[in-house]
Structures are given as C-alpha cells and as structure tokens.
Simulated scan of single mutants.
Amino acid sequence: MPTLPPIVLLNSDYKRLCQILDQLPNQTGLAERLGEELDRAKRVAEGEIPEDVVTMNSIVNFVNEDTGASYQLELAYPGECRGSSDKISILSPAGEALIGLNKGASIEWPAEGRYIHLKIIGVSHPHTSVV
C-alpha cells in the first residue's frame, strides 16, 4: 500500500467507530483497513479539530481522480445512508478513505481489487454551531 497521508479523528468518532467495528460479525478486509486507520489516527478533543478535517457527519466535496467525477456527500454511520443519495457510509471504501483527511489531501485507497485516488476539495460541518 502507498504512503498514507496523516489523519485526525475526534475522540468521540474514534470511540463510536471502534464500537461499530467490535459489533461486526466477521472482520472483512474493509473493516480491517478501517481499524488500521483508527489505530494510526491522531485523536483530538472536540474543540481541537481543524475545521478543514473530515469528521463523521461532515459534508465532503471530493474528486475521484481516476474518473474525474466530483461528489458532495455527508460521511455517515452505517444505517444512516439507506435510501439517501447524498450520504456515504464510513463502511464503504471511499468513506473509510475520507475520514480524518483535510482539505487538499489526496489518498490512494484499495477498493474491490484496485486502488481509487481521491482528493478532498472542501469540508463543511453543518451540524455544528459557530460561536
């Protein structure tokens, strides 16, 4: 696997994602990779995360550099994506690749026997209030 960019996670996201991984019946390759991401992440408190970092429930603007396709999707927990075309699950290859990256970061990530190349164009946090 190529060199991975640094990632930052909220402590609360880390804890909830660890709980989700613990509940999965079988450790799939996807779950293993997400677990590795959680292990390598720098974890911070709520007020310490930079505004341009992808957290759970962030709206992420990103480009698939292989296809040129652009997306604007909310990074969501499993079960929150059903029937929604504007959300991406953290348990999808692209979802686990996005978590913790900052605006401008690129990543090469395994997906279904190949690699995808994603670049973060923008991040917003619509569920947080600005003081």
Rank of each mutant, 00 (worst) to 15 (best):
T55P: 03
N57E: 13
G47N: 01
I107Y: 05
T67R: 09
V44D: 00
A94T: 13
K15L: 10
L34K: 08
I20G: 13
R40K: 13
N64L: 07
A45N: 04
E36Q: 11
L21D: 07
Y14S: 02
L38G: 12
G100C: 05
G29M: 02
T28E: 00
R16H: 06
G113W: 12
N102D: 03
E74V: 02
E80Y: 09
K103Y: 06
Y71K: 01
R33L: 13
D39L: 11
S70M: 11
Y14T: 02
L91H: 09
G113Y: 01
S70A: 15
E112G: 14
I20P: 12
K119L: 08
A94R: 00
L73P: 01
L98C: 03
G47D: 05
K42W: 11
T28A: 06
I90M: 15
N61P: 08
Y71L: 01
K15G: 12
D52M: 03
I116Q: 14
N61H: 14
I88D: 04
G79I: 12
L30Q: 05
N57S: 06
I59S: 00
A97L: 06
K15D: 08
I88K: 09
L101W: 02
I107R: 04
I120V: 15
W109K: 02
P25Q: 02
A41C: 04
E51L: 08
D66G: 07
A41V: 07
V63W: 05
I116G: 14
Y71M: 01
I88H: 05
P93Q: 00
R33C: 08
L101N: 03
G113S: 01
Q23S: 15
Y77F: 13
S58H: 13
D13Y: 08
G95I: 06
V44H: 00
C81Y: 03
N102Y: 13
A111Q: 15
L73K: 10
I107A: 02
R16Q: 08
L98R: 10
L91D: 05
E80V: 04
E48R: 00
T55I: 14
I49T: 02
I90P: 13
N57D: 15
R114G: 11
R43K: 11
N57I: 06
I59N: 02
K42F: 09
N61C: 10
V53W: 00
A105Y: 04
S92A: 05
D39T: 14
N61I: 07
G68E: 05
N57Y: 15
G35D: 05
L98F: 04
L24R: 10
S58C: 11
L75F: 07
C18W: 06
D39E: 11
S106K: 10
S70T: 15
G113T: 13
T67Y: 07
V54D: 03
A97Q: 05
L91V: 12
C18A: 06
V44G: 03
E65Q: 15
A111W: 12
L91W: 04
G95E: 01
E74R: 11
H117Q: 12
L73E: 03
E112W: 06
Y71R: 04
E36W: 10
W109V: 12
M56L: 06
